[in-house]
Design a protein around this nucleic acid. Structure first.
Lengths: 156, 156
DNA sequence: AATATACCGTTGCCGATGCAACGAAGTCAA
DNA sequence: TTGACTTCGTTGCATCGGCAACGGTATATT
């Protein structure tokens, strides 16, 4: 048999990710017009307190420039505050404002509800899926010297 | 507890998809400098014979414009041929050239090897993952009236 | 202390992407 | 036949995202 795209794991993963992302977007879209990077930065700040751009970049799979721009927008919207680090003046310290925390409280609830919904739909396979995702995520980023593109779809 | 991005399924799915895509890209990147849409169009044509832009658009989760542009590039590279449909002259019929088939033969082998590798790494959880992905993919695209963005990462 | 080197965050730039409008072509109904 | 309405593929446009270069700062070496 010839190669079947529909059976190809990277492709399926990608489509699934898009699909799920779209669904979730429909939920929080009503709450606030956030972009993906904004949402991630917000979420990371919410449970990490004060962090630098670098931290988020490393932690949340987001380019430095994205973090920077997202932070700028969020600051403009009044959801976070930027300040200089006390000793190392290269660092920019990001921190949620009360408004930001309030927003994340609402979004967090939405996210958790959505997550619960997904888990319910997946049934008992959910835990195995988690396990598999963990493996896939943890994998050899090192074994990827360069790279060009793939067989997947956008996640946003 | 506050909301944890790392435990959020849409986010994890997205990161996993990126990761896997990058790994795969490293493999076929050496073979041909294809973009994601190009790869998908090629793959779909390979097992479908003659199809229209519309078909691919519907089938492969790719915007019409993407399919159109990818097809144009692939035509330029000599991997496919575009011709008019006999009766319905609105349709553009896409078809692989011998070169295109030869390329997909090589890429198909690479893809299958990669797939096998992933399956091996995932072990017995693979089948459950497949099952879960099928459910996620099949889900309510209808329940997504508009949408804005999500909590995921790029797949390319 | 002075120089070289490494790191941080911002910005410019270019290609990729999604949406919407358009021309072309087909269908249906009067 | 004529004219509204739908469908197909292309193209324009605005945005997004990744890469790389830049200014600014800290650290290491001499």
């Amino acid at each position: 048999m010839t190669f079947q795209l529909d059976d190809f794991l990277p492709y399926r993963l990608s489509v699934a990710a898009s699909q799920v992302s779209r669904r979730f977007a429909a939920r929080y879209g009503a709450e606030a017009g956030l972009t993906i990077p904004e949402w991630r930065v917000l979420a990371h700040l919410n449970h990490s307190g004060q962090v630098s751009v670098r931290d988020i970049h490393a932690r949340v799979n987001l380019d430095k420039s994205m973090v920077s721009r997202a932070a700028a927008r969020l600051e403009g919207a009044g959801y976070l505050r930027k300040s200089g680090h006390e000793t190392d003046r290269r660092l920019v310290v990001l921190e949620l404002t009360p408004e930001g925390r309030a927003l994340m409280e609402r979004l967090g609830r939405i996210a958790e509800a959505f997550q619960a919904e997904l888990m319910a739909e997946l049934g008992e396979g959910a835990s195995v899926l988690e396990e598999a995702l963990t493996r896939l995520i943890a994998m050899p980023a090192a074994a990827v010297p360069d790279a060009e593109d793939d067989g997947a779809a956008p996640a946003a």
